[in-house]
Each structure stands twice: as structure tokens, then as C-alpha cells.
């Protein structure tokens, strides 16, 4: 089974191919006497392809499985099934030693910039650590040169090299995290909510920086966030996840102009518009109730209990992710019949 491929760069061979990836956690339940485990399908059959220099946004609410997906791609959690093909080689099932070597090429940036930096290490040592790990015999001057180069690239000042994380603001800590992720010259970076802990004013700096670095270094990026406006801004294509499954994979402009899935449409409508003239528009996302427990996902389409368009078929039959003639992908029985256009073209 082949997943959604890049539109713009379809002819190029993808660097990453993810096929039918599934991750299941065993959840302990019950009291002392009736203890049992129940499976929680955090990621349930995700497929996609990523080209060199492409950014795929992954968006969804808490509990949709987007962070688990990130961890599974890096081999930090073991998938139950599926393949993660990095340059043609399956990363699933590789032994720890081989996998570690691969991590030179695949790096991650985390959400909480301060918490993900060791408070007892200087900026120099934080950025240098991956170098020491992968090249234990590297000369000290070489390390320092490389660290200084990275600091310049992410917009840190040379005189900050011996400072500690607590001396920096959130945005600067995230710059340190980015420098650390880039120091080994990776080809793919997974950003897990990299700006959601930052002030809006600083968010924009970090998004611009990531976009800039990506272009300069021809990086492939997987950008995970719950903020659709942020994701749209940085991504070429966006995957919308709900309860472990992909609801839609569309090019970023299409996703906003004409969502294909009712869940995408609800997400788009829920984003506040920074304009008083749009007052109260935000109140009409049309989404009913809360997300169901992933331990007990609804039958049929997982979104049907909250979907304003659901019909009988949606309660029974799981809609597969399929490609529409215009090139985007959707998992909805009614995709052809619904017109969820938000912005009229022209």
C-alpha cells in the first residue's frame, strides 16, 4: 500500500516512505483484583511519503497520535506493524546500534525548549554533545569551530557560548535546540510542537528561522503542531490526524481554501481570526462534544459521532484514505458530495 506522495515533487524519489505504520500501547486498567491490559492504538495505519526539501505538517488535537508518530519514525517506540523506509532501508526492527547511526540523519526538536536542555551544560557543550557522541576522537578546535558556526546559523551571539540554558529566554533556548539538532548535518528533522510554548511574537522568529534553514540546507521537515495557522505557514503539505488515523493529506493552500474532510473544516473554522470584524465567527466551528477515548474508538469512521454530515454508512464502514482526482488525499465516504469550501477562488 502506497501512501500520499508529494504533489510538487512527486517525480523525485522520496527520502522517507512510511507504510501502514501502527503503534499500540498496552494500558493497565482495573483495580488490584481485576487488573488487565487494554490495547490503545495510538497510531493506526499511517502512510505517507516525504521528498527531499519538503515540509509535511502534521496537525491534530491532543491525543490524536501525532507525537507517537514522531517517536515511531525515530525508533523511540516500537511499531506494532508497518514500515519506515529511510532512503529505501526499513528502520523498523533495526538493532539499537544500527539505529543510532541512522539518527545522525534523523533529528528531533522538542516542545519545551528549556526542559529539553541539560541545565548543567553550557551552550557550547549542549551543541557539541552529538559531535562527541558520534565522533569521539574529534579535535577540540574542530568542535568549537563547528559549534560557533551553528550558533551563528541559528542567530545566537558568539559571546553566549559559555552561558547556561537558564540565562536564555524561551525563544533563545529553542534556537539552542535547533543548533543541537543541526550539528550533525541531518537530512530530516522532526519538530514536535516546536513553537507552542513560545510567545506569539517569538513564535514567528522561530518559524522564519526553521523555514530559512530548511531552504538553505535542503532539509526535509516533519512539523507537528496543534496550531493549524502555524502548520499552514511552514508546510508544503499537511496531514490531519484524528484518533491515530489520517483524515486528510492536502497541499497547504488547498487545506484552507477547500478542506476535504469535515474534521479539517472544523479545525480551520476554530482558528481565531485576529480581526475584531471577524467577531464571533470563531464560535461556529460546528464540532460537537469531545474527542472519544482512544481506548474505545468509535466503529466505522472514527470521526462519525462528531461529524455534522455523518450517514448510516459512516457508522459501519471505515473509510480508507484515498486519492481524489485533484491530487489530495482524504478518508471520508462523502468527500465527493460535500463542498466544504471556505474561501471562494478568485
Amino acid at each position: 500500500m502506497s501512501g500520499p506522495a508529494s504533489g510538487r515533487r512527486r517525480k523525485q524519489r522520496p527520502v522517507l516512505k512510511v507504510q501502514d505504520l501502527a503503534v499500540t500501547y498496552d494500558i493497565q486498567q482495573g483495580g488490584l483484583l481485576r487488573r488487565h491490559t487494554r490495547p490503545l492504538n495510538a497510531v493506526d495505519g499511517i502512510s505517507f511519503e516525504l521528498a527531499r526539501g519538503e515540509t509535511l505538517g502534521v496537525v491534530g488535537e491532543s491525543g490524536c497520535g501525532k507525537s507517537t508518530l514522531a517517536r515511531a519514525l525515530l525508533g523511540l517506540v516500537q511499531p506494532r506493524r508497518g514500515r519506515v523506509l529511510w532512503l529505501g532501508e526499513d528502520l523498523v526492527g533495526l538493532d539499537e546500534k544500527t539505529l543510532r547511526k541512522k539518527r545522525k540523519e534523523l533529528q528531533i526538536i522538542f516542545q519545551d525548549p528549556l526542559a529539553s536542555l541539560n541545565p548543567r551544560m553550557t551552550v557550547h557543550d549542549i551543541i557539541a554533545e552529538p559531535l562527541w557522541t558520534f565522533y569521539p576522537k574529534i579535535a577540540r578546535v574542530q568542535v568549537e569551530e563547528r559549534v560557533r558556526g551553528m550558533m551563528k546559523m541559528v542567530g545566537l551571539l558568539p559571546n553566549q557560548i559559555n552561558r547556561y540554558p537558564h540565562e536564555f529566554s524561551g525563544g533563545q533556548c529553542q534556537r539552542i535546540g535547533i543548533a543541537r539538532a543541526l550539528v550533525l548535518n541531518p537530512r530530516l528533522i522532526i519538530c514536535d510542537e516546536p513553537v507552542s510554548a513560545l510567545d506569539v511574537s517569538i513564535q514567528a522568529q522561530i518559524i522564519n528561522l526553521l523555514k530559512d534553514l530548511q531552504r538553505k540546507l535542503a532539509l526535509s521537515l516533519i512539523f507537528i503542531a496543534h496550531d493549524l495557522a502555524v502548520v499552514k505557514h511552514i508546510s508544503d503539505r499537511v496531514m490531519v490526524m484524528y484518533l491515530g488515523r489520517a483524515m486528510e493529506v492536502s497541499s497547504a493552500p488547498n487545506l484552507y481554501r477547500r478542506p476535504l474532510h469535515p474534521y479539517t473544516s472544523a479545525l480551520v473554522k476554530a482558528v481565531p481570526i485576529p480581526d475584531p470584524a471577524a467577531r464571533r465567527r470563531t464560535a461556529t466551528s460546528g464540532l460537537r462534544g469531545d474527542m472519544p477515548s482512544p481506548l474505545d474508538p468509535p466503529a466505522g469512521c472514527v470521526f462519525h459521532p462528531r461529524c455534522p454530515y455523518a450517514v448510516k454508512r459512516c457508522e459501519i464502514e471505515v473509510p480508507p484514505l484515498r486519492r481524489l482526482p485533484q491530487g489530495d488525499w482524504v478518508a471520508c465516504h462523502l468527500a465527493e458530495e460535500l463542498d466544504l469550501t471556505i474561501v471562494k477562488s478568485g
Binding site: S169, G171, Q172, D199, V200, S201, I202, Q203, A204, Q205, I207, N208, K211, D212, D227, L228, A229, V230, K232, H233, A252, P253, Y256, V268, V271, I273, P274, A278, V343
Partner: peptide
């Protein structure tokens, strides 16, 4: 200006406020 907006076509870069608090 630094709020990324869904309701506008993408401009190249967001207008970030430079520097830090």
C-alpha cells in the same frame, strides 16, 4: 503582524518582532 493567519495567502516570512523580551 506576528500572528500567522489562515485567512490570508502566504507571504514569504512572518513579521516577527526581532530580539527578545
Amino acid at each position: 503582524d506576528s500572528v500567522p493567519r489562515l485567512d490570508r495567502e502566504d507571504h514569504e516570512a512572518l513579521h516577527a518582532i526581532p530580539g527578545n523580551p
